[in-house]
Design a protein around this nucleic acid. Structure first.
Length: 344
DNA sequence: TATATTTGACCGAC
DNA sequence: GTCGGTCAAATATA
């Protein structure tokens, strides 16, 4: 572990991410222009460059050889992103807790994951859709917190006995960021979501979050891109900083994570709040898993970018302005800051 | 009518 | 007694 080498690698990584941002801005300008075949092709090339750059960035992150720092830290699984211990975070089963309804979870045994996500895709109502369908069952004012904490559980809790829950709380320091804590694992099956009923609303989507979100496909793709990139960079930070303790997600907890289609293009990310989507990773946002393993981070970023590419032909003259999202290039990888795509 | 959200109450842990 | 998590009735929405 050469500190100098790490710092140099970080600098290059930041530089590469900056180039990605530039390319995204070029893509934005392209989307502003009248759409034609040439611009669509140019857009595809831009996206491919973005993918290539992100791949390089991922390679740089790996080259720093800091995953070895991250992996032992992940085993701790006890710290929040801000470094404070989480009384709710623990490995193990939640079966004991379920035996006693209303029993406080502080002593229960949970598999939990934490994420800090931007409001991109969720507007003021909450963070971007994470690919699951959640039903809100409570909200509480938390002592010392400016904003209440919302409690969600899987829509398929009753139908499929899926016991996954999550807590969403707006951060005090930045109202555009949400701390999301996931408990338990999704046991619901994707096929179970389409059985007629389904939700009638998308509770975490604010259709008025941006007045120019006309094209649902483009909107969803870009929202998904932003949300995923937020998490991807967060994971990168965890790898590089070696301080964040993000629990590895087991394959069992991510059963539908397909190798060929991590993000469903048929069902635009961010729009499918009505059930565990077919072919979509059930854990895109909370899926910190083991980022030290090959392909994870790359998969997230690349897949999100390709999702945007795939929707380009449908953009026409409608667009989601990409200035809505911006890398925080000033993040301090050593300070545990969370580099994110922000949605101002 | 079915499903989701809101919100006060309840419960156990501390 | 306080706090956090959950329940469940009332209400809202499509």
């Amino acid at each position: 572990m050469a500190e100098g080498g790490e710092n140099g690698g970080r600098a290059r990584l930041v530089s590469e991410l900056g180039r990605v941002q530039d390319l995204v801005r070029q893509l934005e300008l392209l989307l502003h222009a009248p759409s034609d075949a040439a611009s669509v092709e140019l857009g595809r090339r831009l996206i491919h460059q973005i993918v290539a750059l992100t791949d390089r960035s991922i390679g740089m992150a790996r080259a720093t050889d800091l995953a070895a720092h991250f992996l032992p830290a992940a085993a701790q699984q006890q710290q929040t992103l801000s470094g404070a211990p989480s009384p709710l975070s623990d490995a193990g089963s939640d079966q004991a807790f379920r035996a006693s309804p209303k029993k406080r979870k502080a002593t229960a045994r949970w598999t939990s994951q934490q994420a800090r996500v931007s409001a991109a895709g969720g507007g003021a109502e909450g963070p971007a859709d994470d690919g699951h369908s959640w039903r809100k069952y409570g909200q509480k004012d938390i002592l010392g917190a400016k904003h209440p904490r919302a409690y969600y559980r899987c829509t398929h809790r009753n139908s499929q006995n899926c016991l996954a829950t999550k807590q969403v709380q707006r951060t005090d320091d930045d109202p555009t960021l949400f701390d999301v804590v996931y408990h338990g694992e999704h046991t619901c099956r994707p096929s179970g979501s389409g059985s007629g009923g389904g939700a009638r609303r998308a509770p975490q989507h604010n259709p008025h979050a941006h007045p120019q979100q006309h094209n649902p496909h483009a909107q969803s793709a870009l929202q998904g891109l932003a949300a995923r990139l937020t998490v991807a960079t967060a994971a990168t930070d965890a790898v590089i900083g070696g301080a964040a303790a993000l629990p590895p997600m087991t394959p069992e907890s991510c059963p539908a994570r397909g190798a060929s289609s991590p993000w469903s293009l048929a069902s635009p990310v961010g729009s499918d709040s009505y059930g565990c989507p077919q072919g979509v990773s059930p854990c895109p946002v909370p899926g910190y898993r083991d980022w030290g393993s090959d392909g994870d981070l790359q998969e997230v970023v690349s897949a999100a970018a390709f999702a945007a590419v795939s929707h380009l032909p449908a953009l026409d003259n409608e667009y989601m302005p990409l200035e809505c999202f911006a890398f925080d290039q000033s993040f301090d990888m050593d300070g545990g800051a969370m580099p994110s795509l922000f949605y101002p």
